[in-house]
Design a protein around this nucleic acid. Structure first.
Lengths: 204, 204, 204, 204
DNA sequence: GATGAATGAGTCTTCATTCAT
DNA sequence: CATGAATGAAGACTCATTCAT
């Protein structure tokens, strides 16, 4: 992976393009997005954009690579030394915060997975699975020790992903139903999830 | 909107087309799908297909309309007269069964919502919201009566949608992480969700 | 090689396109030719043209396949039972006649070979080599029997190809040098080559 | 055309570029070649390359001009004072030697002529024709004097060009047919052509 | 009802060339 | 001299839709 040296202009332009691409890809999906839209959003000519990324797909891949790196950070910080319930609740909160702060990234990811993950299946089956298996083992240990309720650790993680990312991925639906409330629903969601997971995890 | 009478052959062909369109749209998204793919999947010529549906969008809309009708059935059956916890657990189960039986429908819906629901926002803000508000009121009542834990009914419903549809929408990710298990993960999920929601709902 | 059945219109349009493509490819080479030029020459819209041939390359390949089939006919008719010198002179004449009648085909072929034959190297190393080896063996036999001069049969065949196709491939040069003569130079060439090969072949 | 004085570094860079351009043009043709390929081959940036040659076409023209100058040298040395047959055989050999030593130049020329010689038609009709006419007159004189066989001198020259350049221009075809022989075929060709032309020229 | 044929409007990508430093 | 950055113009190919039968 010999990374070429890049000038400051290059770094800036690449960042501008990725920002624009994220905006468009996350809303339209890969096929729905056009280079014209991205170029306009980036304030750049199409050929110049392709000077920085050789193809539409190259942009998409760059986005996904950058994403996976940071997307899993909340899970990585799950600490074996902490209190089990608080650790998991903390993970839920961090994950929800990310959904709130980076909804476009979440939708980019969702778009990709829903359509079969053609570009990141390898990453999923490799590093992602490894990390999940690792943390699931930790949670399963807590469960076996009776420090949290008896449950399937993998499916617990899935549930956390599902319930938190839902607020980013299905945003329009959530807003449509909760209207005319504003962004406050994220705080309500945080409160709901906190109580919800606390009860579900705590040993009766 | 004068609904034309349709012959049996017409009904059959429309059904064949919608089946093919569902297959393609759910995998590729609206923009990613091509009429060629759908026509091939339907074993029909493109112009003939367009004789039954005037445009690509008409197919999509037909699919979404049909979908919303049935997609909410599990929620409708939530019974005010039943036992609150069992009613909600039953809803979770029925929703998961639907995700298992109709993953393409779920993904079609997910694709549409993730991309801003351009074609069904009206439905969401109208009939869907009405039904959800209605059932949320029922659940909120149970909660206020202390028959289930204190929680936000709307967000409870969101969580049920999220955790169950996740197994359809994020199927490849779930399989990638749980590999090499087969379809058994749906049973595991059912068990997990049952215990999970029971604990989360039951009043301490 | 399941050949699809084609309607009369298809056959006609395919022929029209190939005729136009031959004209353009033989003059500009593969890379130099544009679909616009070919479409214009064929009196057809570009997309409609691509309805008949999926790509620019498909046209080129179709031309080359058709070409190789007929291009070697003159060599095939070399008859073991005939008089050696007359047989070879007959071959020279037929080859020159082809260069005169089908200069575009000759140039198409020349363009391809000069640029490394990326699309027909397989054909050259296979069927073409087989035929040449076969006929070279026949000629070598005549040579060994003293019925024609002692010479290398393969190189004799090369010389015949070179001297005859030269009048098609290097046409502009030939005309530029012989100007202001008209097409008469083909007759002069025929006479020259006849005498030339007769002397070169006849056993002193 | 005021010829600018050039520094040593300029001369060297121009030479490097032309060498790279020759490599690329001779393999891909003018349209098929890209400045990127040439710049890469020359180990130089594209704009810097264009500093030395204002355009792609300028490189091509420079190559062709340089080429024509040397390409005809073998013909120029045809000596009226020598023995006719030996003079012509010597010319054949020198021409074949050039095809062997400079195949890229030969293919560059072939590419240009096959495609109608748009850039050097003038040269062909001018200096080239003049030289050929001159030498053809010499050969015609020998022929008229009975010192070589009766033949058309212009077409004799064409035949020599054709048979010798064939080994450069149609190299892949020759190798494909003679495989798996190596470069030895050039020696075989030399021997064949020597015997061939000697018999064809010698007066019975 | 059904289909072969046709096309206008894109859509990604390439490329020779110019600009700015 | 040298190069990173930028682009207008073109080019191959796609696709939803329409036409004609």
């Amino acid at each position: 992976m010999a990374q070429q040296k890049r000038t400051r202009i290059q770094e800036k332009n690449r960042a501008t393009i990725l920002e624009a691409a994220l905006e468009v890809f996350s809303n339209q999906g890969f096929r729905g997005a056009t280079l014209d839209q991205i170029a306009t959003a980036a304030g750049m000519s199409k050929p110049n954009m392709l000077y920085y990324f050789r193809s539409k797909e190259a942009m998409h891949i760059a986005l996904l690579e950058r994403l996976l790196d940071t997307w899993l950070d909340p899970l990585r910080t799950l600490d074996a030394a902490g209190d089990p319930v608080e650790e998991i609740l903390g993970y839920v909160r961090r994950k929800l915060d990310m959904a709130r702060a980076y909804p476009r990234e979440s939708r980019l990811f969702a778009n990709e997975i829903v359509q079969g993950a053609p570009r990141i299946l390898t990453e999923i089956k490799g590093p992602l699975k490894a990390l999940v298996d690792d943390k699931a083992a930790l949670i399963a240990g807590w469960s076996a020790q009776g420090r949290i309720a008896a449950l399937d650790a993998h499916h617990l993680i899935f549930s956390i992903w599902a319930t938190t990312q839902h607020y980013a991925d299905f945003d329009v639906q959530v807003r449509g139903i909760l209207a005319p409330k504003g962004d406050a629903h994220f705080d309500d969601a945080a409160e709901f999830l906190a109580g919800f997971y606390r009860r579900a995890l705590t040993v009766g």
